[in-house]
């Protein structure tokens, strides 16, 4: 079957779905069982159906919807022939059937880019939130660091945040074709920025664990495990807010991406350490006295351990 593009326009929002229908029919409506799910309160659960007949002609049938289906300004009573390029309306949503030629696809890529730019320019309070949270993040890392809070570090952090923001918006403009709510983007952005703050806090906690356990290896593994768990949770929440995807999809998607990324980052770190010479087998964490006082071993105990250590070094 030939591929088509279904262009969907709802109020100011427009998206195009490129599809190669598996059967010969496409069902449309608000319900989850439809091929095309429309987020429009004036659309019925099973609103209308598009079918391809033996002659290769698309036919539109209204499925006894509450508000009816409009074609060329009037409600359709029975099945209507729809030619490529023609549009029809259900509730506040207008749909247009287009032949999926390359030229048309290019138009839709342009529209996607426009949609992305629109998303960036309309997300005003997301911008504001990003700025506020970036400032909080800078402050938090400045409290810990003895480096100076100078223009360069502010510019650097700002640039990193801006880049992440645009990347994130791009991701959601792309995934937005199955977006549940427009506001989902704002919500997810907040979750993401909060997540980076949480990571900064997590870093502090991990260094205390390293201090107590005296092992960078354990701290590193713990840090990555927590990171993976947290980012999987974050992705799941974002997908839950934004899309109609199944539970299984959300779970598999968020876990695979997080674990994959975690393993990649950890192995990259170990590779760099292997090359540069890391101190994984020792701990170099030092904490202020008010933060922590821990029991210490005596010199006798320590040197018994050291003698053991020397005795155990193998000649591989």
């Amino acid at each position: 079957m030939e591929a088509i593009i279904l262009e969907i326009r709802y109020k100011h929002q427009q998206q195009a779905i490129y599809m190669r229908p598996q059967g010969s029919s496409i069902s449309m409506g608000r319900g989850f069982a439809n091929t095309i799910i429309l987020d429009d309160p004036f659309v019925s659960a099973h609103h209308a159906q598009l079918e391809l007949d033996a002659a290769g002609q698309w036919q539109l049938t209204d499925q006894h919807s509450d508000n009816g289906t409009l074609y060329q300004g009037s409600k359709i009573e029975q099945t209507k022939d729809i030619h490529l390029g023609e549009s029809f309306t259900m509730g506040d949503t207008t749909l247009r059937l287009i032949a999926a030629t390359t030229a048309v696809a290019a138009t839709h890529i342009r529209q996607d880019v426009q949609g992305y730019v629109a998303m960036l320019s309309q997300a005003r309070w997301s911008w504001l939130l990003t700025i506020v949270l970036t400032a909080a993040w800078l402050l938090l890392s400045d409290i810990r660091s003895s480096d100076h809070f100078d223009a360069q570090s502010v510019a650097m952090a700002g640039a990193v945040m801006l880049f992440t923001f645009c990347l994130w918006a791009g991701f959601w403009a792309w995934i937005g074709k199955t977006l549940k709510k427009r506001t989902a983007f704002h919500l997810q952005l907040s979750v993401m920025v909060l997540f980076s703050l949480l990571l900064e806090l997590l870093d502090v906690v991990i260094s205390y664990v390293e201090y107590m356990l005296s092992s960078q290896l354990v701290a590193q593994i713990l840090s990555y495990t927590l990171n993976v768990a947290l980012s999987a949770l974050l992705l799941y929440v974002c997908l839950w807010i934004a899309t109609h995807r199944s539970k299984l999809f959300k779970m598999v998607f968020s876990l695979t991406l997080s674990i994959g990324l975690g393993v990649f980052m950890l192995s990259a770190q170990w590779m760099v350490e292997g090359y540069m010479g890391g101190n994984r087998d020792v701990s170099t964490v030092l904490k202020p006295p008010y933060a922590m006082t821990l029991p210490a071993v005596s010199m006798e105990q320590y040197f018994t351990r050291n003698a053991q250590l020397l005795g155990d070094i193998a000649l591989e």
Binding site: S215, D281, S283, T284, A296, V297, S298, L309, L310, I313
Partner: peptide, 25 residues
């Protein structure tokens, strides 16, 4: 050989020191 280390908090006189003792052969 590969380096082996003992990383501990050690009581030395009145103070506690963080000490890393490492060796290789």
């Amino acid at each position: 050989s590969e380096r082996s280390c003992n990383s501990d908090l050690v009581q030395l006189g009145e103070h506690v020191w963080k000490v890393n003792f490492c060796s290789r052969r």
